[in-house]
Design a binder for these strands. Sequence first.
RNA 1: GGACAGGUGGCGGAGUGGUUAAACGCACCAGACUGUAAAUCUGGCGCUCCUUGCGGGCUACGGAGGUUCGAAUCCUCCCCUGUCCA
Length: 373
Amino acid sequence: MGQMKFELLKTDRATQARRGRLHLAHGVVETPVFMPVGTHGAVKAVMPEQLVTLGAEMILANAYHLFVRPGHELVRDQGGLHRFMGWDRPILTDSGGYQVFSLSDLRKIDDDGVSFRSHLDGSPLYLSPEVAIDIQAALGSDVVMVLDDCLAYPATHEEAARSMRRSMAWAVRSRAHFDAVASPSQALFGIVQGAVFPDLRKESTGRLLEAGFDGYAIGGLAVGEPAPDMYDVVEAQDPLLPRDRPRYLMGVGTPRNLIECVARGIDMFDCVMPTRHARNGWLFTRDGHIVIRNSRYRSDENPIDAKCRCPVCRKYSRAYLRHLSVSKEILSSVLNTIHNLFFYLDTMRRIRHFIEFERFSELLAVVRNSGAQ
RNA sequence: GGACAGGUGGCGGAGUGGUUAAACGCACCAGACUGUAAAUCUGGCGCUCCUUGCGGGCUACGGAGGUUCGAAUCCUCCCCUGUCCA
């Protein structure tokens, strides 16, 4: 295993919530953490400098997308992804496993790997556990994810078992290849699969623990299953995973999801929701969301959220933001993204704070009673 | 004054006798989005009624009248707009 260190600073008494600190090649990350998504080596609509201001400590980029364009070797030759994109804090790269799911019309999968048709020009591409590691080694990310098969929901037990076992075989290959080619400063995370079936999740976890990883991700969730099912899977995961390793719930989720899953022992999250929703005019507030382009905000002089201390809420009115959104001004995406990311990152700050002061249950209760998503 | 061209739903613009409440685009209204093929996509968009259905009624293609079983589409007159000629 690599040199990554994870300090468990505090564990909540009433819940499984954990307060930790992740030491990575490009810095220290306070957990629980939310990682904004920067698929193509850019968190859409915001500069890295702005991300730092908002409190982002770590971001996610995507190996598949950077492999297709501009190519991982080019990124390596440009000094690695951090230098290339001007972000000197930690980066986690997703392997392309999610694209196995989201680009399902364009791929063919077998035990060896995944054949894709490029979503850009249709040209043939090939991704295997080894290739995914090679790409991420070239990118130089702090945390490398194994290639997995992210299954669509719903799936039968049989389908889920077959897919999970394939993912686990891939995880073992990833482990071996990573040890051969990656930098010691990089960390490797395995991904638990098994859909919503407890026995498969358990088997998957066991297989990963055998191989041994720096951290453990929970994959294949938030793909359409009801939220309570997702919570059940996460909750069942807690006693199976080692306490001294970070747990990462991939692709989740809503602000409510984050708190509920922190309560179930999750340390790391990523999700496109704050950034994509921002561009589509959906803004988070403590009282629920608003769709800023709606006509009801035409002449609303209030900020998005009166309680929010983000740079957008300090200065701009809903009426102006609605105008930008309706007019499709680029600034609309910028300001909305700043607000939503601040909301998410601030939510994580509050979560960490409340865990530290042994008041996490209070925060959880407030959120559960608020009707927030 | 004359010669052409043309007046279609909020706008632009198809449609030249029937399945046209009228293509398509824009605007407008609402919704979706969870390890980003997403600054994307979907739906609605005359009025009205109800037992909400590929439902009923009404109004609608400049105005008035006419032909026809049936007219945005054909005819007559009128009004208006654009271009050109005097």
